[in-house]
Amino acid sequence: MLPSQSNPNPWSESEPAEWSHYSDLETLIIEGAYSTKQPQAILDDYYIDFKQKRQISNIDSNKQRPIKRVQRKRDDKHLREERFMDLPVGTGRSFSGEYGWVSPFIIEVRRHLGLQPDQLPSKDPQLIPMLVEKAAQGIITEAIHIRKQREAEKLAEVLLEKKNKKMKEVWQCCAYLYTLESFLYKTINAAMRLIGDKDHEEVWRSKVGTLGPFCLLLWDDPYNTKVTIEKTLYRGANLKPEQIAAYEEMAKHKNEYRSFQAYTSCSRNRKKAE
């Protein structure tokens, strides 16, 4: 694990050193380069020079920061806060309507790919190579718009290694990639949380062709063969007053149901969610 010094002036001798860790995906790229004895690790905004122990800007070589290599344990609390935090959307509520077991996003993905409702990679392994290839390319396409191509290429590389594997192994890989701290889960969530918002319908539909194949692979969980009911899960989030009011109104109608359309982080432990 390589943190970089994050002081406003990283070379100051009078200020106490402050260190910031790289994201999961950046760390994966850096460690991959380090373990194969490459002199540098190239990231989207900067590169790491292992010999000089420097982080150097890709566009201005004068912008440098010291780095150091340490081992640390994952900070679960920090990561949980990141994933529990609602991304900003243009709606007064943070949930969607009752759409049944299959999300409208997944339905549109299947239509886009010309698949029948019962055509799933968990049931038809011949679909796996095609879906993995489309998922990898879609991730790269989305990343180009936000200048995260290096990160996307790493995600695609890891995913493509599973192209000819069985669905359980492919799904495990997709779940692993989704849980990494990276642009991927944020981009997917930002799109899928717009489902049900008529003012932004064209936004989430525009992601069907790029993010859709990956989402289909992640949704088609081969381990989840039985519907789980009567289970309480907890989720903490910062909500606006109008969003809280929407939940209060929903609670008045006990026979009605609502849904989270994005892949939503929850916990069985209320204390962790809070």
Rank of each mutant, 00 (worst) to 15 (best):
G100F: 02
N269Y: 11
E133D: 14
P16K: 09
R80I: 10
N62C: 07
S23L: 10
N62Y: 12
F105T: 01
L233A: 01
V170L: 06
T187Q: 04
E82I: 14
R54L: 15
I106T: 01
V102H: 02
N224E: 09
A245H: 02
P121L: 07
E26F: 03
G138Y: 03
E248C: 10
I144D: 06
S14A: 10
R268H: 10
R235S: 05
E248W: 06
K207D: 03
S14V: 15
K271C: 09
D124M: 12
R74N: 05
Y234C: 02
E31T: 11
A190M: 03
E31Y: 07
K226P: 00
Q40E: 15
A245E: 13
L79A: 05
E81L: 11
K148N: 02
A136Y: 01
Q52P: 01
Y99L: 04
N269D: 15
E108Y: 04
P8G: 09
M250P: 00
T225G: 00
H21F: 06
L115H: 01
Y185N: 05
A143V: 01
M250W: 10
L127Y: 03
E153N: 05
W101C: 01
A152G: 01
K231R: 11
A246S: 14
I128W: 01
G92I: 06
A156S: 13
Q71Y: 10
R258N: 09
L28C: 09
F260D: 05
